[in-house]
Design a protein around this nucleic acid. Sequence first.
DNA 1: TCACTGATACTTGTATGCTAGTTTGTGTTT
DNA 2: AAACACAAACTAGCATACAAGTATCAGTGA
Lengths: 213, 213
Amino acid sequence: MATRTAIIEQIYDDIRDKILKNEYAPGSKLSENSLSSDYNCSRTPVREAIKRLEQDGFVTVLPQSGSYVKELTLKDYQHIAEVRTYLESLAFRLNCENEVDIGPFSAILDAMDSCDMENPNEVMTFSDLHFQFHLEMVKASGNEILLTTFNRLNLNTNSLLFYQRLSTQGKIQTQEEHRKILDFLEKRDATRGEKFMFAHLWRKRNAYKRSRV
Amino acid sequence: MATRTAIIEQIYDDIRDKILKNEYAPGSKLSENSLSSDYNCSRTPVREAIKRLEQDGFVTVLPQSGSYVKELTLKDYQHIAEVRTYLESLAFRLNCENEVDIGPFSAILDAMDSCDMENPNEVMTFSDLHFQFHLEMVKASGNEILLTTFNRLNLNTNSLLFYQRLSTQGKIQTQEEHRKILDFLEKRDATRGEKFMFAHLWRKRNAYKRSRV
DNA sequence: TCACTGATACTTGTATGCTAGTTTGTGTTT
DNA sequence: AAACACAAACTAGCATACAAGTATCAGTGA
């Protein structure tokens, strides 16, 4: 089977994950040599993985110099938020049309509810679940191209935490919105639900836009 | 400078172009060997280009077997049309916000007007310009991530021509809609314009959806 | 005639070597 | 001490060699 080609995939996913989780900090170097020894393989698969990451905007490659984790500007974050808003609005509409089961979504929201926002660890869990909720929305749509497109957006931890209200009060407000989104989804109210989903995400985009110095 | 790495870029663009223009037919084989002799280089750059094309959904790579131009199903076309609709709606909104100059757009529409739809050659030109119009809309937005995302959609000739009304009558109707879009853009009427742009594109999506057999 | 088997010629996957450009650090000069 | 120049060490770009899986086709058996 196609187990061989999975090496590149695995390296790509791994590095991407570490970038999104800020384990590889923006600006830090990704050397083909050191990575190839990390993964116990030659430079070739590492190289292809880095090329893919470059294509997706996670990495900047300077020829004959090195590959570096991309440092995103506020403008980049704004642009990503804009695209994201529209992609997720589409996802919501498709989910209404497909009459998807809201069970999995409810489960995530319930798990988020039980996070204690005074405990930093659980705040982290809350953020992870928050992203899960949105990712699930895209996955459920059944549009593979939409999912691929969404996954290529550099939605790293920094971008996700930006202007997030991580207090207990903030959690309550966020969850209220999420439950409202789920209500619209349950009622298959694409028009009003999409509008609400749009507003939910576009607000963040506007935060990026305003915070330009 | 970074002239070396441009080889991959060039090969990628070239193959992508040929796929979009149906010069490489869906299902046809893209051998690394024959391509590397075509471009007078080794397999390495060709290979990286193909990997990128695979990532973008233009090519299917079967391990130890070969790379093939992806054969898109109606469902794929539908999915692409869905994503496209939302991306271009975003582009329109951004163009309103940025108060872009409608001059270049008018120029394209004028050129389209002068195409004789009884002449197959000019029908081709009309289609090219039609795509240009939509691409320009995305380019003008100033959102690089949006542009990259849009370019990665497999909007090939087949998909673009599908259910296109290529008669003189069809041209008139299409152009009316385009001029209306431009009107909204000139008035910076993001809300109503976006709605119109959305309908303009979503109709095509629905055509794909209905034509499922 | 058909079904199966096996060898062969293909394909891509991976490793490695070489080249050319960039960075860095050291030693010299002022 | 500071600035410059040069050399050495590092980087990725690309070519090539080998490994391993896949498809094809001829030949043999029934």
